[in-house]
Amino acid sequence: MTGLSLLGLGAMGLPMSEVLLAHGQPLTVWNRTAAKAESLRASGAVVARTPADAAARITLTVLPDLADVQAVVDGPTGLRAGWLAAGIRSPLLVVMGTVSPVAVREYAGELAADGIRLVDAPLSGGVIGAQEARLSIMAGGSVNDVKELQPVFAILGDIVRHMGPVGTGELAKACNQMIVASTVSAASEAMILAREAGLDRAALLDILRGGLAGSEVLRQKGQNWVDESFEPGGTAAYQLKDLAFALASAAEAGVDLPLTTTVRDMFAALVDSGQGGLDHTGVFRELERRSTFLFPVGELS
C-alpha cells in the first residue's frame, strides 16, 4: 500500500493515474471494472482488489456522484474498513468528481466525526486537460488539508485554487458547468443556423476559435459540430446533473438563474429522449429537434 491511491478509472481518472505514474508517484488504483485497472500495472501501479485494499493516507476519488463516493467508503470492503485495518489515522479523502456542494459539505461533517478529513477538489479541463496535466483544480477544505495536497495537485493541473471551506470547490465547479453548458448550447444553435444557411462550418469554426468567441470548449469540441458526431467525453446526462447542482446552490443563495434554467430544460429534454449518453455537445440534437419542429430541415434559411 502506498501513501496515495486513486479510485475511479473513467474518462478522467485513467489519464490522471497515468500522469501521476509518469511523474514517478507511487500509486494504488481501484476500479469497479477491474480489467480497466490492469493497463496501469505495467506502469508501476498497485492494483487493489477492493476499495479497502486501496485505502491510503491520501485517497483520490474520481467518481460521478457523491453516492458513488459513499459506496466506496462504507461497507466491509470499503475505504473506512481499509483505513482502520491499516491503522491510518486522520486519512484524507479527496472528492474530485462533480457532486452537490450542499451534500458534500454535509458528508464532510459526518466523516469528521470519525476523524476522516474531506477536501472537495473538482476538475475542469476535460479528458485532454487530464492527459496533458493541465487541469484546473478547485479545492474546498481546510488550509492545512489543501496545503498537504498541493504536491499531488501540482502534478495534475496547471491552475490550482483554494476556494474556501468544504463545498466551495464544488460551488466553483457548478459555476464552471453553467458556463460550459451555456457555451455548448450557444455553439449548437450557431452551427444549426450555419448549416441551414449554407455556411462552411469548418471555416466558421476556424473563425470562431480565433476571435472573441474562442474558448477551450471550441478548441476541444468544435469538430463535433462540424462532423455532427457526438461520441461522449462528458455526457449530456452528467451535464444535466451538474446543472441541477448549480440551481440547487442558487436556490440556497436566493439567486435567480434564468439562463441556466433554460439550458437545464434543454438538457433534460435531451436526456428524456433517451440521448443522455451523447457528449454534452449533443444538445445540438435537441436544439435541432426544436428547430425542425417549426421549420423542416432545409427551410430555416
Rank of each mutant, 00 (worst) to 15 (best):
S182T: 13
G75M: 13
M96T: 12
A11I: 15
S249L: 06
D279Y: 05
A194C: 13
A213R: 00
V47F: 10
L9N: 07
S215I: 02
F267V: 02
P232N: 03
Q223M: 06
L9T: 06
K221E: 00
K221N: 03
D53M: 12
N31M: 12
L60E: 08
P51K: 14
M1L: 14
G276P: 00
G234I: 02
L93S: 10
A22R: 15
P151I: 06
V29S: 13
S5L: 12
I88V: 13
G78M: 13
P296W: 09
L259A: 05
G78L: 11
T281M: 04
T61D: 07
I137K: 09
G277W: 00
L257H: 02
S229L: 02
R89P: 05
E132I: 05
F230N: 05
Q70G: 02
E286S: 08
A246S: 05
A34L: 14
S124F: 10
P15N: 11
V217F: 00
L156N: 06
T33R: 14
I58Q: 14
D68E: 07
A113R: 15
E106R: 09
A269L: 03
D265I: 00
L259I: 07
Q131D: 13
G234H: 03
L79T: 07
W225C: 03
Q177R: 01
V62H: 06
A103K: 12
R290H: 10
L118V: 15
L63A: 07
I128C: 06
L14H: 12
D120L: 10
A186S: 13
R161H: 07
